[in-house]
Design a protein around this nucleic acid. Sequence first.
DNA 1: ATGGGTGCAAATCCTTTGCATCTGC
DNA 2: GCAGATGCAAAGGATTTGCACCCAT
Lengths: 132, 132
Amino acid sequence: MEDLLSANARAVLEVLRASKSHPTAQEVYDEVRHVRRGIGIATVYRILRQLAEQDMIKVWGSGSGSARYDACTHQHDHAFCTECGTLLDVPVAIELSLEALAEAARATSIEMSSYEVRIYGCCNSCQERRKV
Amino acid sequence: MEDLLSANARAVLEVLRASKSHPTAQEVYDEVRHVRRGIGIATVYRILRQLAEQDMIKVWGSGSGSARYDACTHQHDHAFCTECGTLLDVPVAIELSLEALAEAARATSIEMSSYEVRIYGCCNSCQERRKV
DNA sequence: ATGGGTGCAAATCCTTTGCATCTGC
DNA sequence: GCAGATGCAAAGGATTTGCACCCAT
């Protein structure tokens, strides 16, 4: 499957997988440029979209500002800073009732493909910044 | 608190509260125009941002496309259609371990202000559309 | 007269698209 | 030579900002 990807696409995926944060398209571009000189940002966007369509990566948006990309495919939860837009992986599993989940999907007529728990709040560095 | 709001801001809040869906800024604008003729979309954006900053409303973004606004302040979960961007309220509570939640907040050093469960998938009308 | 709120238009930011070129087959 | 991938620049959509104006204080 990954063999089908272009060299650029492989490089993008590589960057995403190597990154612990959830980079924006611009950040992916800045990073992938080191490996694939001359690559354009349009290509990065094109690749990110294709990877997302094939469910090889996930996309998260905050409202305004840029979307963030995540190569991690296994289910995990996120903490979102409402101040700076940072998206953090939650390193522990937040158990929830799968029954209630299925019931919720039924109630909304959604064909569920994934789910996550999202925590909203103020991240560490923004807390620090506030104190000043 | 709400007495401090301008007439325009009150109208925007009114529209959001009356709406069962989660309108985009443009949709709020279209609606609020009926009541406050001559209001500009910039004002709507300004007000939405202020209300969000004061935690009187919530903002949800999908990645690309427009953000969606929600006047509902009590905790509830959402189902998100990855195809058309629709955001639906989940009418049932999805129980989860509050302990695990607190643990997650601790682990990410987030000062949690709220949380939600998010279900991703394909909504009813997009399922129909597929069949064609 | 002063300050906050506002409409309008221009600016900005993020993302997509059009098109000509390049690539590997 | 062809199909798909790409770079560049321009277009597009969403949101923000600059600025002059208006209104209540």
